[in-house]
Write a protein that binds this DNA or RNA. Structure first.
Lengths: 332, 332
DNA sequence: TTGTAAGCGTTATCAG
DNA sequence: CTGATAACGCTTACAA
């Protein structure tokens, strides 16, 4: 006796409809041709049985799985949340599915990738910096496309989509200079974030080009708390900069709160602050934080375009999407 | 000639290792017995070829797919982001995968569920309120377990995990009364959120039991902006309540900003505010918003426990997890 | 401990 | 337009 809880198969439908299994397949796959009469019988039988086509066998036959793996960091960081949202949206519109992994260590990343591979995902999109050389190598050998999202990846065969961090860094510096700042500060992101480093690069190089070589800086890890701590450090070490650029919004918000409430520093009167990400909270009345908007929706679309292109060319591609400075009260 | 870009299969490995395909299967599935010698040959051949076991055939054989579908709302709402994080974490520890769908309309939800089903997910977890009767029915017929996350679901055969919204609502009222408030206000969530309704229920009933029948209220949609608008409305209509409970934190934060900056109302001197979710931002210096922590990690674990239990009992279960009031400066 | 062979539920090919 | 039939890459008896 068969298992009662087995889902109905195309064969079950075929039997009930009095047609061949292939007829059922053709009816649902929309390939090949089926007479209107047959289709009607099949459809009737199918929903009498509550039939749901099984996607797995098709994948085994070599069709694309329509699943992509997305590897991101922790959702506490609103940037990752937005990335997930944008990518999920874009993919679902195309009928693709998203297999997510939230990860916080290198080891876990490799693990997550290996797990996803077992399900034969069509591609891997990683918003995380680190892929070990071993993983990168074995990945490129499989020929499965990998897109680094907002992370320049030196690994060969890895495509990437990035916001133009360096130009943004330069813009931040220019904006603060225009506003009359003479002393500058920067709050770094985690060491392993290429994006954060590029922001620093643009910022510091621009300032150097304009005769400023002494930038006060402190290190953070992209969290609110680390931003608060960094601000404390910067202002304890001296009188504090007049222009502060932070590698992301969360740290900028933490810094703002500490500046205003603990250190009694006025924003923007005593110091102008700029962040990066245009997190929702940046627009809140309590902050009005100037920030760079990364246009994640466009980056998501670019990601899909890269994957589409890769299918024919097998070439890895690097795209850069400009970030837009939204000047708000924090730097007015 | 075979497709060059085909991934290596267990048969390829077997051929290279000079053993049977089943030997390879046994080596990787850890069932059955393999001699140390054979295993060594197999492993060597496998990573020479870059072999990755394919999970799909096993699923077709009736094994569990180790994938669960998660349906949530938009990640702009930090609550959903935390749910995703917690669930993903808990599942990945068990070697399970998460197929996500972010959804904002009923129609899209049914669609997302149907798509997931094609991949033979082991279960569906929905943090969204609405499942149409049709979907619910066809779902229960398939026997696939469904867990409503923080959404009481009247549909039969649907399990759920909820934070104790009603008790929390009562606690909020009690807390505000103890503090000496006499006039109360509430900002509602979306109409279709059972959780938000239960919070209101607890809040209003407790107050009624203590002689307060007149509660000023306005409607929001869980967003910061809607909270700001609701506050404006409440204070324009009268002198404003002394105790304000909001169906979630985002709305409470919006209300706080509007109260302080637009209306010049002091918190907590003129009005005490309580939110729900214990969003990260609630703990920020600029807000110090009292809030209920839902202990999402526990709820995630309960979800897995329910699924585990369901496997043997086929019984749907309802669990309630207490929410903890974190009293901060906004209601001090 | 091994290998052989029969499925799993589709799609793809090819006669009718 | 339709229906057999052979894959797809595994797991799982069963036999050796």
């Amino acid at each position: 006796m068969k298992n009662i809880h087995r889902l109905p198969t195309s064969t079950d439908v075929a039997r009930l409809a009095g047609v061949s299994q292939s007829a059922v397949s053709r009816t649902f796959s929309r390939r090949g041709s089926v007479s209107e009469q047959t289709r009607a019988k099949v459809v009737a039988a199918a929903d009498q049985l509550g039939y749901r086509p099984n996607a797995l066998p098709a994948i085994m036959q070599g069709q694309r799985s329509q699943m992509i793996a997305l590897v991101t960091g922790r959702m506490q960081n609103p940037f990752y949340a937005r990335v997930l949202q944008a990518l999920t949206n874009a993919l679902q519109q195309q009928g693709q599915q998203v297999l997510v992994s939230c990860v916080d260590s290198d080891h876990a990343l490799d693990d997550a990738i290996n797990q996803s591979m077992r399900y034969r995902v069509d591609a891997i999109v990683s918003a995380l910096a680190v892929i070990t050389p071993a993983t990168a190598a074995s990945l490129s050998r499989t020929g499965i496309p990998v897109v680094a999202f907002n992370n320049v990846q030196n690994a060969p065969g890895v495509s990437s989509v990035n916001s133009d961090n360096e130009t943004a860094g330069r813009q931040a510096a220019a904006h603060l200079m225009t506003r009359g700042c003479q002393h500058f500060g920067f709050i770094h992101g985690p060491q392993d974030s290429p994006a954060a480093r590029q922001r620093w690069q643009g910022f510091s190089v621009y300032l150097a080009e304009h005769g400023v070589n002494d930038i006060a800086s402190a290190c953070g890890d992209f969290s609110y708390q680390s931003g608060a701590a960094a601000a404390l450090q910067l202002w304890r070490e001296g009188s504090g900069p007049q222009g502060l650029f932070c590698a992301n919004d969360l740290m900028a918000l933490g810094a703002m709160d500490t500046l205003r409430q603990t250190l009694g520093v006025k924003i923007p009167d005593d110091v102008a602050v700029i962040g990066y990400d245009n997190t929702d909270a940046s627009a809140w009345d309590a902050y009005q934080l100037s920030s760079f908007d990364q246009d994640i929706e466009t980056m998501a679309k670019e990601t899909l375009a890269i994957l589409e292109h890769y299918r024919s060319s097998k070439q890895s591609i690097v795209r850069t999407v400009p970030a837009l400075l939204l000047a708000r009260a924090s730097s007015a």
